[in-house]
């Protein structure tokens, strides 16, 4: 575990020293937030739209932006770079558990995602969004988003280890991306058309988004929050198992 932590600190340093790779994760989600709210806010006035629970449309849209920020997977590209540059072999030739090499990066991703999510939520607060579930809800909001980021990067990392190619890892990211939009992105699930509703119901991201949304719009609704965490934990377990397996068989 200590090796994973040492490697995690190094991955964080790498992130800090590449702000140009980090800044888009902050600005692109903000851009979408502003644009989506600007386009749809008039359709959903706060006073007469039941699913907004008295808040503005921005509060409803914030989870989409949080998930978008958590689904860039830049860290996986650093891993490809490390494989191509040979440093990955240097790490593999040292007596640390193989799992520490992948875990280190995931730990760093968790820390990074907590920071980015916190900044985004605080910006939201500054623009009048409130967290209806209070301080506990705030913590859960940040935790759930950050865990999603770790799961997402973890899957990208598997692609990186398998393909060892930046191009392939990038396009894998594009394959995952639609999952973010096959969700109740603009309106709650029960207002979607039937095919969309089916797609959203099958899509695990939906439950993460609904959990985040309920934390912002309602008091602690465990019935909605729990499925979000369950999805992240289940996918996280699969992701971890695959990561460890792939790096142990790396040749």
């Amino acid at each position: 575990m200590s090796a994973a932590w040492v490697l995690g600190k190094r991955a964080l340093r790498e992130g800090r020293r590449t702000p140009d790779a980090l800044l888009p994760t902050l600005f692109i989600p903000l851009f979408f937030l502003v644009v989506n709210v600007g386009q749809a806010a008039k359709i959903f006035p706060a006073a007469s739209t039941e699913f907004l629970h008295g808040q503005g449309y921005g509060a409803f849209q914030l989870p989409s932006s949080l998930l978008l920020a958590a689904s860039f997977g830049t860290a996986a590209l650093f891993l490809v770079e490390e494989i191509e540059g040979g440093y990955f072999d240097k790490l593999r030739a040292s007596p640390v558990p193989r799992s520490a090499i992948v875990l280190g990066r995931l730990i760093a991703e968790l820390v990074k995602a907590v920071a980015i999510t916190t900044v985004l939520v605080l910006l939201g607060l500054a623009f009048g969004i409130s967290i209806a579930s209070g301080p506990v809800g705030f913590v859960l909001l940040v935790a759930l988003t950050a865990l999603w980021a770790v799961v997402f990067v973890g899957f990208m990392q598997i692609i990186a280890l398998k393909t060892r190619s930046a191009a392939a890892t990038n396009s894998a990211g594009l394959v995952f991306f639609p999952l973010l939009f096959l969700t109740p992105n603009f309106v709650p699930r029960d207002l979607l058309t039937r095919p969309m509703e089916i797609a959203a119901t099958l899509n695990p991201v939906t439950y993460v988004m609904e959990a985040l949304r309920s934390l912002i719009l309602e008091d602690l609704e465990w019935g909605t929050i729990a499925p979000g965490f369950a999805v992240v934990l289940a996918l996280g377990a699969v992701m971890l198992a695959l990561n460890v397996r792939v790096i142990q068989r790396y040749d």
């Binding site: 340093r13 790498e14 590449t18 490390e82 540059g85 040979g86 990955f88 072999d89 240097k90």
Partner: peptide, 14 residues
């Protein structure tokens, strides 16, 4: 063992 491979494996950002 200590290992220095043909392509020096270093991390450019450190």
């Amino acid at each position: 063992i200590g290992v220095a491979l043909q392509e020096a494996g270093l991390d450019p950002r450190q």
